[in-house]
């Protein structure tokens, strides 16, 4: 029941975002709100088994929901800008030293792994290639392998980022 409710509320919020500016009740018209309710319940019944697979509603905690956009705007965006300038210089000079390293993530949940893998792909010269589900380790392709990472068997996730402790942020959001 709680899974159904969470899915329906998420669908309703998405519908509200898509139809903002249609009327006078704050921003929405009456008909949009009624149709949105009906559609959200239908979508909730159809997809709650996929959307909340484990039954944990940890992500419904408002602090985590506020931290997620803050994380996306401040640390992730700054790391992204740095990574882009780095790769832009490599595009122009053609100076690459690629390689695949093994990274220990320290995450416990699937959502944490998803967020970390996507963050790694969007940030400094790194690209996740394969996930080892049993040990929660990632294989990461680096565009420029530094000398001190080349000889290590397993690298900690913290060592891939330069300014912020991205794995710490993700642990706070998703676990």
């Amino acid at each position: 029941m709680i899974r159904l409710l969470a899915t329906a509320i998420a669908a309703f919020v998405a519908y509200l975002f898509l139809t903002a500016g249609s009327g006078t009740i704050i921003l929405w018209s009456e008909s949009e709100l009624i149709i949105g309710c009906i559609l959200a319940i239908i979508v909730g019944i159809a997809s709650y088994r996929i959307f909340c697979r484990t039954g944990s509603v940890r992500m419904a905690n408002p602090i985590r929901l506020i931290l997620l956009p803050v994380y996306a705007i401040i640390p992730l965006f700054i790391e992204m800008a740095r990574a882009n300038i780095d790769v832009a210089i490599r595009v122009i000079t053609g100076n690459v030293k690629p390689g695949i390293v093994r990274v220990n993530t320290g995450m416990k949940t699937d959502l944490g792994m998803l967020l970390l893998a996507n963050s790694i792909t969007l940030t400094p010269g790194t690209l996740s290639v394969e996930i080892d589900d049993a040990t929660k380790q990632l294989y990461v392709h680096l565009i420029n392998v530094p000398d001190e990472l080349r000889d290590k068997k397993v690298v900690e996730a913290r060592e891939l980022f330069s300014f912020f402790n991205i794995p710490g942020w993700i642990r706070r959001i998703a676990e």
């Binding site: 690459v96 030293k97 690629p98 390689g99 695949i100 390293v101 093994r102 290639v129 394969e130 294989y139 392709h141 392998v145 080349r150 068997k153």
Partner: peptide, 9 residues
């Protein structure tokens, strides 16, 4: 990966 210095995978 064709030019590569290390490939753990």
């Amino acid at each position: 990966p064709d030019p590569s210095v290390v490939d753990r995978l």
